[in-house]
Simulated scan of single mutants.
Amino acid sequence: MKIVSWNVNGLRACVNKGFLNYFNEVDADIFCVQETKLQEGQIELELEGYHQYWNYAIKKGYSGTAVFTKEKPNSVKYGVGDADHQDEGRILTLEFPDFYLVNVYTPNSQRDLARLPYRLSWEDELRGYLKALDRMKPVILCGDLNVAHHERDLKNAKSNVGNSGFTSEERGKMTDLLTDGFTDTFRYFHPETEGAYTWWSYMNKVRERNIGWRIDYFLTSDRIQPFLQHAGIHPHVMGSDHCPIWLEVDFSALPLKQKESLLTN
């Protein structure tokens, strides 16, 4: 199974910049997008063989998530928890036989950190939600999490300490989640890799010079580790200020009894 995640920073604009070419080329089993920036009826995507699920923000041209999947999920949930976190269309949860898929677009703390308290409240609620899901079956979380966890996850770490996306509070929330039973799959396969980024400013030649941040992730329940095949980044794919990331998982990789033991405990 191949899963792709991409913050498209406006799906209509991204479609005009080659989104469908990449979508068809990568042939993912599940394709998740964040920051769709549209309302129902503003786009018609012909994605043959895929079921489409959308969570729109109430505010026009803002936020939003979507999931396109070849396999129809057992159930779909829009949003999570406190009503204060529902209006921006930031979470979609699809339940499949072996796992939950949670597609997330985490709020940005803003340049002056004005939204940091809201962001931290969001982090706490999301973590509780993920742990509750994990008690039922494993979780695959993907999306733009708007944080560079370690210094190797951004080009200019020292000059960005304390800035939005690299505050001690945001990084600490990521650490809390990972130590609470979740795996950063890119680091699982590439523990020491540097210069691997998923977002670049639109400023002149920043992407060309690879002055970026890794803020898009696939996080999985730790017990999925035996099923992980590979995880990577497609920095060559244009169309957004983010690039796509991908994860390959094979739930048939272990004998049935061993698989059932891991996925039900």
Rank of each mutant, 00 (worst) to 15 (best):
W6T: 03
V8F: 09
R12S: 09
R12Y: 11
K17G: 10
K17T: 08
F19V: 12
F23R: 14
F23L: 11
N24Y: 15
E25S: 15
E25A: 15
V26G: 02
D27N: 15
A28P: 11
D29C: 04
F31H: 10
E35A: 07
E35L: 09
L38G: 12
E40F: 06
G41R: 10
I43L: 15
L45M: 12
Y56T: 00
K60S: 11
A66W: 08
V67M: 09
N74Q: 14
V76S: 10
D82T: 09
H85G: 01
E88M: 04
G89P: 05
I91P: 02
I91N: 05
E95H: 08
F96C: 02
F96A: 03
P97V: 01
Y100M: 01
N103W: 10
T106L: 05
S109A: 15
R111F: 08
L113H: 06
L113P: 04
Y118H: 10
R119F: 01
L120M: 11
W122K: 01
D124E: 07
L126Y: 04
Y129K: 01
Y129G: 03
Y129R: 00
L130H: 07
L130I: 03
L130E: 00
A132F: 01
L133P: 08
M136K: 15
C142Y: 08
H150D: 08
E151P: 13
D153Q: 11
G165D: 05
E169P: 01
E170P: 01
R171P: 01
L178N: 07
T179S: 14
D180K: 01
F182K: 03
F182S: 07
Y188R: 15
H190R: 06
H190A: 02
G195R: 11
G195F: 14
A196I: 05
T198K: 14
W199A: 06
W200G: 12
S201M: 05
Y202T: 05
R207D: 02
E208T: 09
R209H: 12
N210Y: 08
R214H: 10
D216R: 10
Y217N: 02
F218P: 01
S221Y: 09
D222Q: 10
I224R: 02
P226K: 07
F227N: 06
H230K: 14
A231N: 14
G239L: 01
G239W: 02
S240Q: 07
S240D: 03
H242D: 03
P244S: 11
W246C: 02
E248G: 07
V249A: 13
D250K: 10
S252Y: 11
L256A: 13
Q258N: 05
L262P: 02
